[in-house]
Amino acid sequence: MKMIYKLKSLRETILNRSVRSFIKSEVSVTIKSLKDAIINSVIWSAMIAVTSGYILQSFGMSKNYGEFQAASLITSAVGFETYRTIFRLLSDIEGEKIILYYFSLPIKSNVVFFRLCVIFALNGVIMSTVTLLVLKAVLWNQINIANINFALFYLVVIVIASLFATFSIFLTAYTPSMQKIGNTLMRVLFPIWFMGGYQFSFAAAKSISNVVACMSLVSPYMYANEAMRGIILSSGEFIPIWKCLTVLVIMTVIFWKIGISKIKRRLDII
């Protein structure tokens, strides 16, 4: 009964004109600023693709390492938005406080956070597409995009984007000030990125040490990378996509619940 009421309330919220306009305005701003984000993504992914697909191979790295890195690169392109979002949220909270204007609107305060997830998902879809195209152009025969199930690809991208959106809210809530943002980067974001299988698969970690493999499972990047590898790579042993998606969804719900409640307390809003 409670679930039906919640779903009904969610449906009403989505159909609400104020809510739709609120989200639409942010989408329009995001689209206007896409040019810079695309240029950044092209430069970044092209450089890494050249390194992992050609330079490292000349030092004896496996021939399909370029393809392997391609999957991690797409995940990272979505995940790296996390730092930018924490930076943006914190600088606003400590400066202009535009977020408080949004909380003064006659809409549920969760919609302000939901909007962040929508923007993350939109960015994720665009950035992953751009990165995939750049990777194909640079790696050419090393990657076969004809084998990719694009419906599944974009489903995974949206789930990953939602996870990192809620993770941004969660980390913003626990970062005390702009001065401490470096600590969040060095103590949380970089470790989970490196330990999250950017350069290795879960199976590879397990073959070396069970402890290392277990540690890597704490990082959401591991599930995101493994799911993406399952879609992009033609062969290899990875955690099944449905298992990765389940864990990512559970993590998203946890970060959403804890992050929002903590940030609301921090901002002292209704």
């Binding site: 305005s25 701003v29 204007y101």
Partner: peptide
């Protein structure tokens, strides 16, 4: 004044009215 600097004055005014239905 927490006006949204990503929008013009006109957009800030119109957006507000739209958000308030």
């Amino acid at each position: 004044t927490n006006l949204d600097n990503r929008f013009t004055v006109r957009e800030n005014l119109i957006n507000d009215a739209v958000f308030f239905g």
